[in-house]
Amino acid sequence: MTTPKNLLKAERVAYIHQRLEELYPETPVPLDHKDPYTLLVAVLLSAQCTDERVNQITPALWALADNPYDMAMQSVEDIQAIIRPCGLSPQKSKAISVLSQMLVEEHNGEVPNDMAALEKLPGVGHKTASVVVAQAFGVPAFPVDTHIHRLAQRWGLTSGKNVQQTEKDLKRLFPAESWNKLHLQIIFYGREYCSARGCDGTVCEICTTCYPARKHPKKAKKP
Results as ranks from 00 to 15, higher is better:
106 E>C: 09
220 A>S: 15
39 L>K: 00
71 M>W: 07
132 V>G: 04
6 N>H: 06
180 N>C: 09
196 A>T: 14
191 R>M: 11
35 D>F: 03
128 T>W: 01
74 Q>V: 05
115 M>F: 00
75 S>D: 14
139 V>T: 13
27 T>D: 13
187 I>A: 10
134 A>D: 06
61 L>V: 02
44 L>I: 11
30 P>W: 10
132 V>K: 00
28 P>R: 07
158 T>K: 02
218 K>Y: 15
71 M>I: 01
140 P>V: 02
179 W>I: 01
100 S>A: 09
14 A>P: 05
48 Q>V: 01
49 C>P: 01
158 T>D: 14
177 E>D: 14
142 F>V: 00
38 T>K: 01
93 S>R: 12
100 S>H: 02
195 S>Q: 09
15 Y>E: 08
61 L>Q: 08
112 P>M: 04
76 V>R: 03
221 K>W: 10
192 E>M: 12
40 L>V: 10
29 V>A: 15
169 D>Q: 02
152 A>N: 02
214 R>K: 13
58 T>W: 00
101 Q>P: 00
44 L>P: 10
112 P>G: 13
34 K>T: 14
12 R>E: 10
16 I>A: 04
120 K>R: 12
155 W>P: 00
212 P>G: 12
86 C>T: 14
184 L>C: 08
217 P>N: 13
135 Q>A: 05
129 A>K: 02
177 E>M: 01
82 I>M: 09
185 Q>S: 07
122 P>A: 03
130 S>V: 01
126 H>C: 12
154 R>L: 07
24 Y>V: 10
189 Y>E: 05
207 C>Y: 13
204 C>L: 06
154 R>V: 03
199 C>G: 06
40 L>F: 12
154 R>D: 02
115 M>W: 00
135 Q>S: 11
117 A>P: 07
220 A>M: 13
154 R>M: 07
115 M>C: 02
157 L>T: 02
183 H>S: 10
41 V>M: 07
83 I>P: 06
37 Y>V: 07
85 P>H: 07
81 A>K: 12
190 G>E: 05
23 L>F: 13
131 V>N: 15
38 T>S: 09
78 D>Y: 00
90 P>K: 14
94 K>N: 15
124 V>E: 03
64 L>C: 02
208 T>F: 03
51 D>H: 03
135 Q>L: 08
52 E>Q: 11
212 P>A: 11
35 D>E: 10
164 Q>V: 12
